[in-house]
């Protein structure tokens, strides 16, 4: 399984030299295996996504964790949606009242965007998902609701030899008890358990989190603890705060590593990074 990171920033794209190293585009990754392509989230990073000519089919699947703007704002600039030869499937969390199509249309329609979903030239299919398991090519995908405002899922992508867990926006510590170490009571645990690689929200320091409780994101300390309980092998900390410079991301990681001694390897996610899981 090969994974390319096209956007790792949280909330809003950033530009400028102070965030150039880790990157300023919002959430988007691609996952390749056996000539099949999955795209997870359609943040601004999707605009730069290059479709490998090894793609076996004319099919692309875009899996959205939720519909906050930083996870969909790049969709209208993704070239495959404008290619009539392409078959594009968009999967996103179901809401109790409106379809995925209706909710995506709020963004992909005037006055926010000039092109309507129904006018996109590709062959487009939308799928409402919830706590689901489905197969796409060589991948088995599990989606499950996780703690974040509004309908939000995380994904567990299982390939032939490896498992990726993707939970970019997640607040498992929400509540008086914070993270409950009993895995039955831990949001997202089933998605992450034993994964070869976990991409997880770590927007805040624990001090910052005290003032951002309920906003749907994690401190790096909580993300670290979550990863430890889930016994993952490797973690990439995700959703860097748009106000945080590269130097501050490094300081945050250094402080985290100084205070903890977890078994997994970890680092901040970096735009442009490629990871191969074997």
């Amino acid at each position: 399984m090969k994974i390319n990171l096209w956007g790792v920033r949280g909330s809003i794209p950033t530009s400028g030299p102070e965030t150039a190293y880790y990157g300023g585009n919002t959430s988007c990754i691609d996952v390749w295996e056996d000539g099949w392509l999955l795209i997870l989230d359609g943040g601004s990073g999707i605009q730069k996504l290059i479709i490998n000519p090894d793609l076996k089919t004319k099919r692309i699947d875009i899996l959205l964790t939720h519909l906050h703007l930083d996870h969909i704002q790049g969709l209208g600039f993704f070239k495959a949606l404008f290619d009539p030869k392409m078959e594009v499937h968009i999967w996103g969390p179901a809401s109790t009242t409106r379809t995925l199509h209706a909710r995506l249309s709020r963004y992909l329609s005037p006055p926010l965007f000039p092109v309507l979903i129904r006018d996109l030239p590709c062959k487009l299919t939308l799928h409402d998902i919830e706590n689901s398991i489905f197969n796409i090519g060589p991948f088995t995908i599990q989606s499950a609701y996780v703690i974040h405002p509004g309908p939000t899922v995380g994904f567990r992508v299982t390939g032939a030899h490896s498992v990726l867990a993707y939970i970019p926006d997640h607040e498992p510590a929400l509540g008086k008890s914070a993270i409950i170490s009993d895995s039955k009571w831990l949001s997202g645990f089933d998605l992450a358990v034993g994964a070869d690689l976990l991409l997880h929200d770590a927007q805040y320091t624990s001090k910052e989190y005290q003032h951002k409780m309920g906003w749907g994101h994690s401190s790096i300390e909580d993300a670290g603890r979550f990863a430890s309980i889930a016994a993952v092998k490797q973690v990439l900390f995700w959703h860097h705060d748009p106000y945080r410079s590269d130097a501050q991301v490094n300081e945050m990681l250094a402080a985290f590593k100084k205070d903890t001694n977890y078994q997994y390897t970890c680092q901040p996610a970096k735009e442009g990074m490629q990871i191969v899981l074997k």
Partner: peptide, 18 residues
């Protein structure tokens, strides 16, 4: 055992505060 759904987890976290 699989985790509880988040609706159950959030009810517990709420109850814990009451």
């Amino acid at each position: 055992m699989a985790s509880y759904e988040i609706e159950i987890i959030l009810n517990r976290q709420l109850a814990d505060c009451l």
